[in-house]
Design a protein around this nucleic acid. Structure first.
Lengths: 271, 271
DNA sequence: CGTAGCCTTGACCGCCCTCAAATTATGTGG
DNA sequence: CCACATAATTTGAGGGCGGTCAAGGCTACG
């Protein structure tokens, strides 16, 4: 069953032991399939349970009755949504599937039992939330500061990294099973302008998105354009001792590296 | 000591018993004063401890070496920053004071002892993080979808509501002890444009910001302009059983209720 | 083979940015 | 209390990124 795959992915990020993994598995309902464009959670309601994504892609949206929809996060294999139920908080956003999705549910009771017995699982969930918050902050940079080209490049870097961690990449490609309009919702630009930006990325030879398939042609160039620093994703290894920065000096180092990488600062976009 | 004030504010939002409050108090170091424009936490480092704000205002920033700074959140009395240390995660953003700030520290060891004995305190901290995430999503709407006028109005509504909960409002006014440039960083616009937007708000008679003092002149008009729905702030009462909606039909109800509920309760900003 | 949705491209417009200068707080020493 | 220096706020003129409206081409799927 692919549920294990999703849990394994979650476990890798959060360092769960195998007994913890199987306990988590037991707490899940059996997987259920949801068709594309279906609402899983609705803003303003209390979710009956949280969802753990097994396959497919879903997205978080904050309602904007009069304007365009604003996507505020993507959910990939191994991601959780509806964790707010565990805290008795109503949803402040909706969650909709973008593609066909397989997901399992975790009820609040199941979570309470689980976290009582395995505090490390509660920590794992908190870590997921912390990383989501970091992603959210990067999205704020995307829509606020970066040019549409840099923002799109950054989003592609993020998605590819996360899909890679979820084991959903093949070589330098991955499937993005949703429309350009969905990407536009994430970057807070119009579908028309997203398309133009996509063309620019294509013509500069950095990446190509076609038929729902993303191909990274020039990873280094893409990262440079996006000023992408994967630290915020806290991938496996991020909390391992390889990065032993405990004080400012280490930070200076890291910053210096990232600055040097920016050598051609505002000129990364070759035509 | 005003530490109690901050903890009481936190406790109100998170429903801490008085014994839990005093345990939390014991876990804090004695308050320390930080001058304005000082860095409390640095991106890329592991924080030695978390900070609980007692007074003043601080802000989270994600580094943008070449561009303008992007503020991704304000910290007011009763807010915590550096919670990532509790999860062994490095900082993905910096925290700087905007005004003179009093704050206490909570070390990771203190937190671990605390959360072992009082799981409800751990829940309270998680709830704070969940609300911060919701605020972050609203900021994404601010910079992505709303006009600069609506965004500024929304930010004022948010700040006033939170300062009200923190007991830092007087009638329809509150102090915002930072510059227009700081507000511009939060809305991802230039100080020049923020100033023009501020003028528009002033001329439309909705709100006035002058000499670091915000005055709400037309609360209803401001909320309408901003499409402000305070639900996402999960103020005291939001998680109380008065709203027992569990499914989609309930959502419609809630929206109606919450609109009705805004009549008196969210009316603290009368002149 | 037809239809519907998605993608692509063109022309024009407005919000916000940039650069620049004037005016007004804020704070400091005399 | 005043003179001065510095920072913050305010206003003007002009330009560009991305939005809007619209039409045509492509793809998937029945």
């Amino acid at each position: 069953m692919t549920v294990q795959l999703a849990i394994a992915r979650l476990a890798r990020n959060a360092q769960l032991s195998s007994s913890e993994q199987s306990a988590l598995l037991d707490a899940c309902t059996s997987p259920k399939r949801y068709e594309a464009r279906r609402e899983l959670l609705r803003e303003g309601t209390r979710a009956p349970a949280a969802f753990l994504l097994i396959s497919g892609v879903a997205a978080r949206f904050v309602g904007n009755p009069d304007g365009r929809a604003q996507c505020v996060g993507y959910l990939l294999r191994g991601d959780l949504c509806g964790k707010r139920t565990f805290l008795s908080l109503p949803m402040d956003h909706s969650v909709r599937t973008l593609s066909t999705v397989d997901a399992v549910s975790i009820t609040r009771d199941a979570y309470d039992r689980l976290s009582g017995t395995f505090p490390n699982i509660a920590r794992a969930f908190q870590r997921l939330s912390a990383v989501e918050a970091a992603v959210s902050r990067q999205w704020l940079l995307n829509v606020g500061q970066r040019s549409s080209l840099a923002a799109l490049a950054h989003l592609f870097c993020e998605l590819f990294s996360r899909l890679e961690a979820a084991g959903e990449t093949v070589q330098n490609t991955c499937r993005l099973p949703f429309t350009q309009a969905d990407l536009a919702d994430a970057l807070a630009i119009t579908p028309v302008h997203l398309n133009r930006t996509l063309m620019k990325l294509r013509k500069s030879g950095l990446a190509v998105l076609r038929h729902g398939q993303l191909s990274i042609l020039d990873a280094e160039g893409l990262r440079t354009t996006a000023r992408f620093d994967p630290l915020y994703l806290s991938g496996p290894g991020a909390q391992l001792p390889q990065l032993t920065l405990t004080a400012s000096p280490g930070a200076e180092e890291r910053r210096a590296i990232s600055l040097r990488r920016e050598d051609p600062p505002r000129r990364p976009l070759i035509v």
